[in-house]
Design a protein around this nucleic acid. Structure first.
Lengths: 299, 299
RNA sequence: CGACACCAGAUUGU
DNA sequence: ACAATCTGGTGTCG
C-alpha cells in the first residue's frame, strides 16, 4: 500500500491511491505532494512543512488513532519546489513496546501503529482530507522527526576487527543538529544503529528542558534496535539481561541508556516514538542519515 | 601485475614487465605484442596467432606448481614460439573449482582475484594449465579459446518483465561456431552470462565426440557465473541448492547442466577451464562476444 | 527456523 | 550519477 501526502493542493491530506491524490494536485500551481510506504512517513512529510522542523511551528501534530479513526492535518505552507510522483514499494510496520511499566501491556500500544492497518481489502477509507487539528486543547503541539542510521565499513571482517562503525542523525536540510559520529567499543552495524537513536534521544532530553509539548518521532531502519529498546528490553530488565539462549545481551550499555532516556522523556510528558522505516527505499530522511553514518565510519 | 605477450619479436613469450617486453619488440619489424591483466589472457593471445584458434595448435603450457613445492620445471618445448619468460607471481587466479571429485581441492578458492591481486609478492604462480595434457605422450595438444558474454536490455525493469536478455559465444573471426542467442526464462543479465557458458560447453561436448586432446578455455567476465559453476556449486550440491541466506539458488537449472557438462568432458579426459576476464577492457574476444550478446537480446 | 540491518565482490544497464 | 541481477559474510534478536 502506498500513501500519498498532499501538502499543497486543492485539498491537503493523505490519500491511499494515486488517482485520489492526482485529482488534488493536478492543475494546482505550486503543489507539493509525495508518496510513501507508510502512513507515519506520510504524516512526517505533512508535518515537516517546507523548511525543517526546528523553530517555526505553524503546523500541528496529528495525534493518532488506530484503525478506523480519521485524522490528518494539513498545515501547508509555502515555498518552492513541488512535484513528485509515486514510486517506492513495500510496507513496513511499527508498533510500540510498553517499556513504561505503567502501561497495562495487554495491548498497550494504542499508539498509531498503523502498519498493520492495511489488513486486507478496503480497510481504511481513502483519504480523509483535512479535518482540522482539533483534539489537543493546548496550543502548539510540536512534532519533530529525527532520522537515525548506522553504518559499518568492512563489516565482513568484523570478526577480525577490521571494521569501523559510524552513525548519523538527521533532522532536516541544514539543521544544526544533524550529526555524524564514530562508534566507540565494538565496531558493528547494530551498535551504529543504536548510537544513532541514542544521540537522538540525548538531544531530545536536552531540548525538552527548555520546551514542551513536543512529540519526537525517531525513525530507524533497524528492527533490532527498535525491538531491543522498546520490546526485548522489558524482559531483559526482569531477567538480568540474558538472551533467550542464556548469553549476555550485547550492546546492553547503549540499550540501557536509551531506555533510561525514554523514561526521562515520558516522565516529562514528552512523547517519543521509535518508528521503523524501510532502508534504502528512497526515503529522504533515511538516505541523509545514511550518508552521515557512512561519514562517521571514517572519523 | 600486467603481462606482456610477445607474439612476434626477437624472442616471443610472455613477460611480466614492460622493459623486458620492450627489448624483445624494439627494432623488430612486424612485431606483435600486447599487454593483459592476466596470464590466461596473455596465453590466449599467444595461442590465437594471427588467425583464429581452430586448427593450428602449437603452444604449450608451462605448468608450474604452487606455493613451495618443487618448482619450476619448465617443460616447455617445441614448436614455434619457444622461449619462455620468467614471470613471477600471478594475479588473477583461475583457480579451479573442484567440481571433479578427483581434484584434491586443497587449494580451492585462492582469494586473489585480481583487484587485490597485486597484493604482495611471491606466493603462487598460477599455472593450472594443462595438467593432463602433459601426461599424454601424444602429439598435438590443441587449445581452443571461447569467449562468452551475456547482455540485457532494459535491465532496470527486470522486475516488471520489461527486460530482454541475450548471450553470445565467440571463437574467432568468421568462425561458424560464433553464436548469438536469446535467453529463455527469466530475462536477466546473469542468466545471459550463464547461457553463454552453457552454449560453449555444449559445443565442446559435441566436438569432443570426434576429436580429443583438446583443452578448452572458456572466457567470461562474470565472476558470478564462474563461481556458481566451479565453486559455489560444490556446496550447493551438498546442501540442496540453498543460498547462504537460505533461499533457493537462482538459475540452478542452467548451473546444474553446466556442471554436468564439465563432468562429462573431464570424464573424457578433455580439459575445460573457465577463465575470468575483465569486462570492457579492450579484450577483443570479450568485445565480440558482447556484440553477439547484445544482438541476442532482440531475437 | 524467522526477521531486520550492515557490508564485500562481480556483472548488466539508464 | 542512478538502478537491477547475483553471490558470500557478519551483526543481533526471538
Amino acid at each position: 500500500m502506498k500513501y500519498y501526502a498532499v501538502r499543497n493542493g486543492h485539498k491537503s491530506g493523505v490519500y491511499n491511491n494515486w488517482s485520489d491524490c492526482e485529482s488534488q494536485v493536478k492543475g494546482y500551481s505550486g503543489n507539493q505532494y509525495k508518496s510513501f510506504n507508510s502512513r507515519a512517513e506520510a504524516n512526517a512529510y505533512m508535518n515537516s512543512g517546507s523548511n525543517s522542523n526546528s523553530s517555526r511551528s505553524s503546523y500541528r501534530s496529528s495525534s493518532s488513532s488506530s484503525g478506523s479513526g480519521s485524522r490528518s492535518r494539513s498545515s501547508y505552507s509555502n515555498s518552492s519546489s513541488s512535484s513528485r510522483a509515486p514510486y517506492s514499494n513495500s510496507p513496513s510496520r511499527s508498533s510500540y513496546g510498553s517499556l513504561n511499566a505503567s502501561s497495562s501491556s495487554s495491548y498497550g500500544s494504542s499508539r498509531s501503529s498503523y502498519g498493520s492497518s492495511y489488513s486486507s481489502s478496503s480497510s481504511y477509507s481513502s483519504s480523509y482530507s483535512s479535518s482540522s487539528s482539533s483534539s489537543s486543547s493546548s496550543s502548539s503541539s510540536r512534532t519533530v522527526n529525527i532520522y537515525t542510521d548506522g553504518a559499518s565499513k568492512n563489516n565482513q571482517g568484523a570478526k577480525q576487527g577490521k571494521s569501523t562503525a559510524g552513525f548519523g542523525v538527521y533532522y532536516g536540510p541544514g539543521d544544526s543538529r544533524n550529526y555524524s559520529g564514530r562508534v566507540t567499543g565494538e565496531q558493528t552495524n547494530n551498535r551504529g544503529e543504536l548510537y544513532g537513536i541514542h544521540k537522538a534521544l540525548k538531544n531530545s532530553v536536552e531540548e525538552s528542558k527548555s520546551s514542551s509539548n513536543t512529540k519526537y518521532f525517531i525513525h530507524t531502519d533497524s528492527q533490532y534496535s527498535k525491538d531491543a529498546i522498546t520490546k526485548w528490553g522489558n524482559s531483559w530488565e526482569k531477567n538480568g539481561w540474558k538472551t533467550s539462549t542464556g548469553s549476555d545481551v550485547i550492546n546492553q550499555d547503549v540499550i540501557k541508556e536509551c531506555r533510561d532516556m525514554v523514561r526521562t522523556l515520558k516522565s516529562k510528558n514528552v512523547d517519543v516514538e521509535i518508528v521503523k522505516v524501510k532502508g534504502h527505499s528512497g526515503n529522504h530522511g533515511n538516505d541523509q542519515a545514511d550518508k552521515l553514518a557512512v561519514e562517521g565510519c571514517s572519523k
